[in-house]
Amino acid sequence: MASLIAQYLTPPMPQVTKEYDGLEFRWKFLTFRPAYFKNELYFLGAALLYFVFYFVGKKANKTKAYKWFEAHLPLYKAQFSRPANAEGLIQDGNSDFFSFSTGRRGLTSLHTTFTLRPRHDLFQLIYQFARGLIELDYKVFDSVELEFTFREPADKDTAVPGCVWAVVAKDEMKQLRADRWDMTFTKTTDNAALPQSLAVMSEFADITSALFKPYGAFSLPAILSQPDIQPYFRSLSLTDQPRVRPPSPLDPSERSKRLILSLRLPPSSSASVTLPLVTAAFQLVDIITGEGKLPGVRGGLHAQLRPETRIKLKKTREEVEKQMREEAVKEKREEEEDEKASARKKARDEKLSKLSAAEQQKALEREKKRQLRKSQGKLKMR
């Protein structure tokens, strides 16, 4: 039996003619004749091309992320006592890199996250290219995001108010609203101080007024209007809400207030072009928290808002949390009703299984009539 299986699995011997006069390699009892391996050569070439593509793409992504980080590292070192991990950037796969910074007034941490195109994966690149031809709104690019987490608790009225505010590139607005639930709190408006390519998303106008007014030599609209920066700017947002809508109100320990700067990653040769904008983000942190040496920031952003704005912000969050609690209770009640209905059906099926065929038929007809009367009653009530 084993010999039959071995004969079945063994490939047939190649038909080698005695007249073969092509290239041939011999070593002891082994003979290799390349002319008989034409298709295999193509497969080997394709595999070699894929591996070369993999290692070149992997190296390109790593170089691009490290170039940007190295260009901004002196600023990180000036701002934090622990500006980065011991190994610099931490790599997660071949297209994701991140760094953690801590040790600064007003901040718990800064997470710097790189999301690069999968240059190491030829098939993913082909998929992205094909999808871009079909879906006009589909865009892929290298990005870096800086998420500043404020030290102040999210459930208290301190220097950092509980609000949602953002400046967004208009071509990013649709995707931002789809990805970020917290942006649903805002209204979108144009602002005369900004270029036409940017828009403001804010809960109330005086939040924008407070952040856009000049603080000494610092002016956020002037920095955002710089032509060198605009191609790489995606969004700058201040938020006290999670990115994804939670099923129920979060515990205060799970909530945080954050300033998020999202950028397109510039080419490695121009990695420092976004340095003024990242510097401005640190200055904006000081304005919001009331820290630093800039004039007019005492009390932070919370002190600059009108009392009625602070009341409305608090009321909005109370209403959202109330709605979440009501939806959570309703969902739990529906789950309990489904469980009870399932238990009743199981008990009914067990009872039916013990009856004869005729009795089962009668019971099913009675149940059908009962459901019909029930549905007719509901129609009359409407």
Rank of each mutant, 00 (worst) to 15 (best):
A2N: 03
I5R: 15
M13E: 11
D21M: 06
D21R: 09
D21I: 03
F25R: 09
K28V: 10
F51C: 05
N61A: 04
N61F: 03
K62Y: 09
K62T: 11
A65S: 11
L75W: 01
R82W: 13
P83L: 03
P83S: 07
G88F: 06
D92Y: 09
N94G: 09
T108P: 02
T108K: 14
L122P: 02
F123A: 14
Q128V: 07
R131Q: 09
I134N: 10
D137Y: 10
F141D: 11
L146T: 00
E147I: 12
T149N: 10
E152A: 09
E152R: 03
K170F: 05
W181Q: 01
K187M: 11
K187G: 13
T188L: 07
L198T: 00
F204E: 07
A205E: 14
L224W: 04
S225K: 06
S225Q: 08
P227G: 05
Q230F: 06
R234Q: 10
L238G: 00
D240A: 14
R245L: 05
L250W: 01
S268R: 06
Q283Y: 08
I287M: 04
G292V: 07
L294S: 02
G300E: 01
E308D: 15
K314E: 07
E318T: 07
R325T: 11
R333N: 10
E339K: 14
E339T: 11
S342L: 14
E350T: 08
K368H: 13
K369P: 00
L372N: 14
R373S: 11
Q376W: 14
R382F: 13
